[in-house]
């Protein structure tokens, strides 16, 4: 089978589910709103990083991106709809590849747009405090933010294929991001720098001093995402539908 019709079909699946628009809208609204709030608050903290403050809305906003990735895949497992999908496209690898494209492209596009809006909204509040940010740093933050959100959506998509359930994915990833990474983050020392969310978020800071830089950090997140996707593909191909 050709890839284009499969991709067209998968894109149509995303376009015909209204709840998916809702999650993408939430990525934009939540991220922008939280960034705007952060920009309007106190900037006297010694750890203050103007770029991260401008993009800090990503922290709650990524949950919506994760929900998007998980829901695009989990919608297949409602009422065993996956059987119908795989009867139409028996080449499971190709089918999943098309699925990933329709997760990645909207997540990246919305991520980039969101990051731009977040920076603009936060800078309105930050004023002088963000004056030191160069255009290059802001561009790096925006592009990195888009890629980061895309990788998190793909990570969720891979885990959903592995668990065959969106609920299992969300109840694993969200506590992980909200609690594990946040609470034990500083306590556990260097290792947490390599967790998927921590590593990828380095790109959102103007200054960074961990073992990872902005792009190496995203590369580490990409490795986690790749691992989740490979696990998902393995489950999809080895299991009876």
């Amino acid at each position: 089978m050709h890839f284009t019709p499969v991709l067209r079909s998968e894109a149509l699946k995303v376009r015909t589910l209204r709840s998916l628009y809702g999650t993408l809208l939430a990525v934009f609204a939540v991220t922008t709103a939280f960034s705007a709030l952060a920009g309007a608050s106190d900037t006297s903290d010694p750890d203050f990083d103007p770029l991260f403050t401008a993009l800090s809305g990503v922290w709650p906003g990524q949950i919506a991106a994760i929900a998007f990735g998980a829901m695009v895949v989990s919608s297949e497992y409602h009422g065993n709809g996956i059987r119908l999908s795989l009867a139409a496209v028996p080449q499971r690898g190709r089918w999943f590849a098309a699925k990933l494209v329709v997760v990645a492209v909207p997540a990246l596009a919305v991520g980039l747009l969101t990051a731009c809006a977040a920076v603009v909204a936060a800078r309105a509040g930050l004023g002088e405090a963000a004056g030191g940010l160069t255009a290059g740093e802001q561009a790096r933050g925006v592009v990195g933010c888009g890629i980061y959100l895309m990788l998190m959506a793909l990570l969720a998509a891979g885990l959903t294929a592995l668990f065959r359930s969106g609920t299992a994915t969300l109840s694993t990833l969200i506590p992980f991001i909200l609690i594990v990474s946040f609470v034990i983050g500083d306590a556990a020392g260097g290792i947490t720098d390599f967790l998927p969310d921590k590593a990828g978020q380095v790109v959102l800071y103007e200054t960074y001093d961990g073992p990872l830089g902005p792009w190496t950090g995203l590369a580490v997140t990409a490795l986690w995402t790749t691992a989740a996707l490979l696990a998902g593909v393995w489950r999809l191909r080895s299991r009876d539908a």
């Binding site: 009422g79 065993n80 709809g81 059987r83 119908l84």
Partner: peptide
């Protein structure tokens, strides 16, 4: 195979 295969 299954009447419930279509997404609601």
């Amino acid at each position: 195979l299954d009447a419930h295969a279509a997404h609601g």
